[in-house]
């Protein structure tokens, strides 16, 4: 394969999905970085493992599998929020516990289904279906071959919905990220915004999973925002910079994976590597500028 093979529809479609999701991720990442939600993002992505295991246990595939993972992510996010709400448990503690619990449950359920295969009640539960063995490396690092054509349209639609919601609510979200307590006193519905953001993050994670995998999707949810706040001090500048950094990482990583070693290298890690280099460049730029000032 050469870099020009990207122009084939079967490779162009995932790239289109990637570009759309990256735009949504980049905007979300600015909120995540400013509101310091990076660790909760980690919690939600790892909850995805629980969802993958549960879907495998119930022998679900296609949309049902995606929905199960999505709901598992949302459920975990809600439990984290409820646990930490009353101040009884610190939020990073709650995330740390649920993160590993969800992963453990996921692997356990995935193993359990193999051992339960002969049991009658299990056959009734799954309706006699058998899920194919779980491709854990694809779950971890993504595999675009798992991307179905309809996924592309779902990704584009979801990315547009997330971007649209962020645009419509940008004043509320900016205030909420700037100072949550004060924004509540000024009449901003902070609880609603918090859950809305968690739902958006969970939806994006499930969609990005096939592209980047559950571990690497965190790069798209953090790096663009983290680099952007180093590059600009204006909100509009930060949003544009985040989108540019994200898209360079996505498109660059995609092309690099095709161009280097004849397409035998995985795309997800390539994208993450480029994003990390872009962050280093942003950091250097920031240092240079403040040294000159």
């Amino acid at each position: 394969m050469t870099i020009w093979d990207v122009l084939e529809p079967r490779f162009l479609a995932p790239l289109l999905a990637g570009i759309a999701l990256t735009a949504a991720c980049a905007l979300l990442s600015v909120v995540i970085v400013l509101k310091r939600l990076a660790f909760i993002g980690q919690g939600i992505t790892h909850a995805g493992f629980g969802g993958v295991g549960l879907a495998a246990f119930l022998a679900l595939s296609g949309w049902w599998r995606d929905l199960t993972i999505f709901l598992f992510c949302i459920g975990t996010a809600v439990v984290i929020a409820l646990l930490s709400r009353r101040g009884r448990v610190m939020i990073d503690t709650a995330i740390g516990i649920l993160l590993v619990a969800a992963m453990g449950v996921g692997f356990l359920l995935d193993q359990l289904r193999i051992h339960l295969r002969g049991e009658g009640w299990y056959g009734t539960l799954t309706g006699g279906r058998h899920a194919p063995p779980t491709q854990w490396d694809a779950v971890l690092f993504g595999n675009i071959l798992y991307l179905r054509p309809e996924d592309v349209w779902l990704a584009v639609g979801c990315a547009a919905a997330v971007a649209g919601l962020l645009a419509l609510l940008h004043r509320e979200i900016a205030f909420y990220a700037f100072d949550e307590t004060v924004s509540r006193v000024f009449g901003v519905r902070t609880t609603l915004l918090h859950y809305l953001l968690l739902v958006m993050i969970a939806a994006i994670i499930v969609l990005c999973m096939k592209l980047l995998g559950l571990i690497l999707v965190n790069a798209l949810l953090i790096v663009p925002g983290a680099a952007a706040v180093l590059l600009s001090r204006r909100l509009s500048g930060v949003l544009i910079a985040a989108a540019v950094v994200g898209e360079i990482g996505m498109v660059g990583g995609y092309l690099a994976a095709f161009g280097i070693m004849g397409g035998r290298l995985p795309i997800g890690p390539m994208i993450v590597l480029i994003l990390a280099l872009l962050f280093a460049a942003a950091l250097a730029f920031n240092r240079l500028r403040s040294a000159r000032a």
């Binding site: 400013l34 419509l168 609510l169 004043r171 509320e172 900016a174 205030f175 990220a177 700037f178 100072d179 307590t181 004060v182 924004s183 000024f186 009449g187 901003v188 519905r189 706040v229 600009s232 001090r233 204006r234 909100l235 500048g237 930060v238």
Partner: peptide, 28 residues
């Protein structure tokens, strides 16, 4: 609010912060 409660490295200018005052009043 008390001043040290506020994250000051935010990419917001003065007008944007003052405009936060009307966000709740305007409604979603």
């Amino acid at each position: 609010p008390q001043r040290h409660d506020v994250e000051i490295t935010f990419p917001f200018n003065v007008a944007q912060v003052v405009r936060q005052g009307i966000v709740g009043r305007t409604g979603m």
